[in-house]
Write a protein that binds this DNA or RNA. Structure first.
Lengths: 135, 135
DNA sequence: GTACAATACTTACTTTTGGGTAGTAATTCA
DNA sequence: TGAATTACTACCCAAAAGTAAGTATTGTAC
């Protein structure tokens, strides 16, 4: 946990959120959600939480993602410093992606989101299929 | 916790994610993220976690959101069964939004995301301003 | 009695972003 | 020779988000 600010007091959720009057554009929550609250971003991080992966492995795992969106999202995560990229000078090319400490730090929040999804699986499935039918 | 499935075994995160080979479009994670992994959605839910709010209160709090996006997102959350809408027959009109149990169930995951944002505040701020400058 | 304020939205329009298709380079293998 | 493999890019279109203005209703100020 080395990157955590040592002297920062962690305010319990209920208190901090209750006290927060404004989620303005300077608010850390607004910023944080602007950066990572995105389907592909979160799915790719989830995938990489299992360990280092090649481009093609992520592509196969995160079904529905196109090469373009994968490349694009990985490039963004690279810029954010959430993943590291390692190129092997081989043919066919091999590129490996690994989460940095920053990226791995999402493990807990994403873990809870995963649990939440399981808890509400039936409801979410119903909503999802209703939504799909409308398309 | 009434809506939780009583006999569902909760798989610990590391195990469940490690075992999951494919995040395909039938995967609950893919579906769940498709539905809620969105900046405005999460910010509005965060706001309503503080308690029942009027339209204008949310609008003031979640700065940067336009009436259009607010109305649109609330309508979606209504359809998902995450918020309830109560209209008071007054002039000027009064409409109140309240999270349902389903909506409130995101409290814990969002709490961790909030903590995470605080832990990485400096880094996130740097990334955010770099991103903004590029615009 | 006209104009303005307040509230919760719509609607029409523009811009930005997301997403799909196809293609490229550099080899190895059959 | 030509197919296979891999990690991308370039191009284009559709969808989403942002912008700005408008609507309905009624009390209140002038």
């Amino acid at each position: 946990m080395g990157a955590f600010k040592k002297n920062k007091i962690k305010i319990p959720f209920k208190e901090s959120v209750t006290k927060k009057k404004v989620f303005d554009e300077d608010c850390i929550l607004h910023r944080s959600f602007s950066l990572i609250a995105d389907k592909w971003t979160l799915l790719i991080i989830m995938s990489l939480l299992q360990g280092t992966k090649r481009n093609s492995e992520i592509q196969r795992q995160v079904q529905g993602i196109t090469p373009k969106m994968l490349a694009q999202t990985l490039k963004t995560l690279l810029k954010y410093g959430m993943v590291e990229r390692k190129v092997f000078p081989e043919v066919p090319p091999r590129v490996e992606y690994t989460l940095t400490e920053f990226g791995r730090s999402l493990s807990e929040p994403l873990s809870l989101l995963f649990d939440w999804s399981l808890d509400w699986e039936d409801k979410l499935n119903k909503i999802y299929s209703k939504k799909k039918r409308r398309k």
